[in-house]
């Protein structure tokens, strides 16, 4: 694997970001809107004094972590879509670039998005809600890394589906993540879900991440159990999805569709 080639694709996407105001807005707009909406709502609920636990902290943490997952996944998917929209896949794959290098370039793009979004949300949360994300030390970072890996896996999955069905499937790149949100126990614990639905929840690494996050916020022992489960499940998905992507890429080369993808 050659870092120079990965870097080439990375910079190619940063060129776009640097120039396009809508693209920059796109990175921050939804995360910021959600932060404001849910943040103020939770401040209000807090005032009602229904529960003893710090609702503001838990909800803000959930919003921020969910936004990280979502923006990482979407930027990964869009990095691929960009090449499809511009009919650039052929140009890219007649260079010595390997598929895995291409995929890693999308991962690094996801990391850049995560850093940017967490910086902006972290600052805003501190300003508006006196919420300091760093109060949990580094305990949340391993969970954020798992979210990144899971976001990469979902991104790869949407890419593979787009290879198979063309851009008519591109809505998945933006919508698929919302399919798993209700089951991921983002804003409420798994125990709040009906028993049958919990089985679905436990198939998602994001569930363990958000359970782990709440455990971290409640203080006490570090939730190793949740972290291990989250990493393991995310790892399994990543392997499966990589396999699926390579299969679909091979399928496209069989059908001679790399140039005709749209």
């Amino acid at each position: 694997m050659k870092f120079q080639r990965i870097n080439a694709l990375l910079i190619r996407h940063l060129y776009l970001m640097k120039r396009s105001f809508p693209r920059i807005m796109d990175i921050f707009f939804w995360p910021v809107m959600e932060l404001l909406l849910w943040g103020f709502l939770s401040v209000y609920i807090q005032k009602l004094k229904i529960a003893n636990l710090n609702i503001v902290t838990v909800l803000l943490g959930a919003i921020i972590l969910w936004s990280l997952l979502q923006s990482a996944q979407q930027s990964i998917s869009v990095a691929f879509l960009e090449e499809v929209w511009e009919k650039n896949l052929l140009n890219i794959f007649v260079t010595p670039l390997r598929i895995i290098e291409f995929l890693f370039s999308t991962l690094f793009l996801g990391i850049i998005k995560i850093v940017l979004v967490s910086a902006v949300l972290g600052i805003l949360a501190a300003l508006f809600y006196a919420f300091n994300i760093f109060q949990f030390g580094f305990s949340l970072i391993p969970f954020i890394i798992v979210l990144l890996i899971f976001g990469w896996a979902i991104g790869l999955f949407t890419m593979a589906v787009i290879l198979r069905f063309g851009t008519s499937a591109q809505v998945l790149a933006f919508g698929f993540i919302f399919l798993i949100q209700p089951f991921s126990a983002v804003f409420y614990p798994v125990s709040a879900l009906p028993a049958g639905v919990r089985h679905v929840s436990y198939l998602l690494p994001s569930t363990y991440v958000f359970e782990g996050m709440r455990a971290v916020m409640a203080g006490g022992l570090f939730p190793y159990h949740e972290l291990v489960l989250a990493s393991a499940v995310a790892g399994v998905y990543l392997v499966l999805v990589l396999f699926f992507f390579y299969k679909m890429f091979g399928w496209v080369k069989q059908r001679g569709l790399l140039m005709k993808l749209d």
């Binding site: 120079q4 080639r5 870097n7 080439a8 694709l9 910079i11 190619r12 060129y15 776009l16 960009e82 090449e83 511009e86 009919k87 650039n88 052929l90 140009n91 890219i92 260079t95 010595p96 670039l97 140039m259």
Partner: peptide, 20 residues
């Protein structure tokens, strides 16, 4: 097979030079 239209000519050339 054209190069991405939403990049500058210089950016396209740099990208592919790096890829090679």
């Amino acid at each position: 097979v054209s190069l991405p239209g939403n990049l500058k000519v210089s950016e396209n050339l740099k990208t592919f030079a790096r890829l090679y």
